[in-house]
Design a protein around this nucleic acid. Structure first.
Lengths: 157, 157
DNA sequence: CTCCAGTTGACACCAAGTCTCATTCGGTGA
DNA sequence: TCACCGAATGAGACTTGGTGTCAACTGGAG
């Protein structure tokens, strides 16, 4: 997992300024252990109620969206699609990876193996397409939600 | 490819009424050879300009969204994600399939081979998740757009 | 310390999709 | 054929998620 320092270094390396709002977004983003939406971040550190931890400044909606876009372009964040179809972000190590997301609690587990990389040559040959990119998300139920579901089924209210 | 009759039969089989707006949506949907968005359909057969073919009735936005949802739930339509991240629909034969979509012109080609079905057992074992569903889209450039791109590169304005 | 370009926050705007509700209509039973 | 009933419809307000604009601010180089 990346640290705040590392992310800040990446930003500076790419010519982005290190501002307080950006630091706050980075800190918030690193605090999430599961996928979060831009709007969640807006309601956490933008305007509204506190829970900010450090300063009392509120961060603009546009700034949050812009910063997320920058972090995603630097591969600090991965953009993924939630089971409900909405886009979300998740922060984990660098590199190409996909996620398996729990439909109940939203927990995401990354896996680095990408079946598309194997499939691509065949697919390119069969369809004559030049393959540039792909989108892969797997949805299911995580171990702890499975336990909850079984418990609920065994002892219905 | 399904016919209008077949789709109407599927609707009736599942207890849905066969109404004029639904028939119009089905007809419009079957007319598309590439992915279309709900909003495209709204501007085609809802309100606005004609091009309706048969009757001059305009179909409500809500009705179109509702009908698309029904058709998708009956597997008549497949819901997919466009290169720009927006959801779209495509109408092809029944059954589980994925699409490779051209980032330039939007042409989609289906492929029935699903790498996730092979990957699922391993993934379930490694992550302890119970796998229920997945989302896979491949993006690239179709043969004709490749030709266009090469022609444009060879003879720049 | 000064300066300036990058960045910010506020807010208007837009697009896509959902919700509500009075009205309409398809299909069934008489 | 007709009446009836509940599903379906259309209009439009509303919600949600995201973008664009612009004056003011600020990090950091000199």
């Amino acid at each position: 997992m990346l640290t705040k320092r590392q992310v800040e270094a990446i930003l500076v390396q790419h010519g982005y300024r290190l501002t307080q709002p950006r630091a706050a977004v980075v800190e918030a983003v690193l605090g999430y252990t599961r996928p979060f939406t831009a709007e969640q971040l807006v309601s956490n550190i933008g305007g509204g109620s506190g829970g900010n931890g450090g300063n009392g400044r509120s961060i603009g909606r546009a700034t949050i969206y812009r910063t997320l876009e920058i972090l995603a372009s630097l591969d600090v964040l991965t953009r993924l699609i939630q089971p409900d179809g909405h886009p979300a972000y998740i922060c984990d190590s660098l590199g190409h990876r996909h996620h398996i997301v729990c439909s109940d609690c939203g927990t995401a587990v990354a896996f680095t193996f990408c079946p598309i990389q194997e499939l691509a040559p065949t697919l390119a040959r069969d369809t004559a397409f030049e393959i540039h990119d792909h989108l892969l998300e797997v949805f299911g139920v995580c171990p702890s939600c499975q336990v909850v579901a079984k418990t609920a089924a065994a002892a219905p209210a």
